[in-house]
């Protein structure tokens, strides 16, 4: 009956949909969304690893900073974050790097015309569109990745750290050579989930707005032609297709990082990753 409905309900307008699904702005949107996914995940994973390691630092200040970061960025919805970053231009007209309080200090010395600014750009060129969206997604992703990395590190037997320390390895070296490579086995499957979630979440930057992004483009076609529903179906099909490609990639990554683990453990890991929470 569902299939019958799909084929006979005129509102789907299949031929119109397929005609518009591959037009240049939509394809450009696919490219932008993929680029956003990859870049925000790379930034998010790197920052997430740093934060995850910081969370487990014996230094309470470092650990606390990481906790506050994850607390904030997990508490704010991505959509809100994206719109917030898109409007940061209101707060700062220009982004400048230099000596803090330079104008105030130099003003005290009677030097009003000079300042300590070293480098600056117009905030709107950085914090509008693509970069605002990228920053919002990456910073939010880092908070989730930090928790995943922390779980991965805690899953590594403490005997591994002891053995590394007994060999004279420093804490950093132990982390890099011994703990993190093993934590990867636990980190990779949920990171795959995160990547897929990220691909879908790139849709929220349509509200930054990032105008050349997939969902923005598809909605644009839909509203321009008054054929909203077919284009929403087109969006679904694009996201399903892209997600499927990512799933294949995840499979190979997991294989790579389970080196040295017996077949049995590997199956156990897979069983665990199926139920991994998002």
């Amino acid at each position: 009956m569902f299939v019958h409905m799909l084929l006979t309900n005129d509102a789907f307008k299949w031929s119109f949909m397929f005609d518009n699904m591959f037009n240049p702005p939509v394809l450009e949107g696919v490219r932008t969304s993929l680029l956003l996914t990859v870049e925000s995940m790379v930034l998010g994973v790197v920052l997430g690893i740093v934060l995850g390691v910081m969370r487990l630092s014996p230094n309470p200040v470092i650990s606390w900073v990481a906790w506050v970061y994850t607390w904030f960025f997990r508490a704010v919805p991505r959509l809100v974050l994206a719109i917030l970053f898109g409007n940061l231009g209101i707060l700062y007209a220009r982004l400048e790097f230099g000596i803090p309080f330079d104008r105030q200090l130099l003003g005290l010395l009677g030097l009003d015309s000079v300042d300590g600014r070293v480098w600056g750009v117009d905030a709107n060129t950085v914090l509008a569109g693509f970069y605002a969206g990228l920053l919002a997604l990456a910073l939010s992703e880092a908070a989730y990745m930090a928790e995943i990395v922390r779980a991965g590190i805690l899953a590594v037997d403490s005997g591994q750290t002891e053995a590394a320390q007994a060999l004279g390895m420093s804490r950093g070296l132990t982390m890099r050579r011994v703990v993190l490579p093993q934590a990867m086995r636990v980190i990779v499957p949920p990171t795959g989930n995160e990547t897929i979630a990220m691909l879908k979440d790139t849709a929220v930057v349509a509200f930054v707005p990032v105008t050349n992004e997939l969902f923005f483009q598809i909605r644009a076609v839909g509203t321009r032609t008054f054929k909203v529903f077919p284009m929403l179906v087109a969006a679904c099909l694009w996201y399903v297709a892209l997600t499927s490609v990512l799933l294949v990639g995840q499979h190979f990554l997991e294989k790579r990082f389970s080196r040295g683990v017996s077949q049995v453990t590997r199956q156990k890991m897979r069983a665990m990753s199926v139920g991994a929470p998002k």
Binding site: E162, Q165, L167, P181, Q182, R259, G260, V261
Partner: peptide, 26 residues
């Protein structure tokens, strides 16, 4: 400091009950 402790540990070998070999390395 951690670095100095590590340097001294390097001169003492330790073998554990549970081996604690690094499973990700040959």
């Amino acid at each position: 400091k951690e670095r100095e402790v590590a340097r001294k540990r390097a001169e003492i070998g330790m073998v554990f009950q549970r081996f604690n070999l690094f499973p990700n390395m040959t």
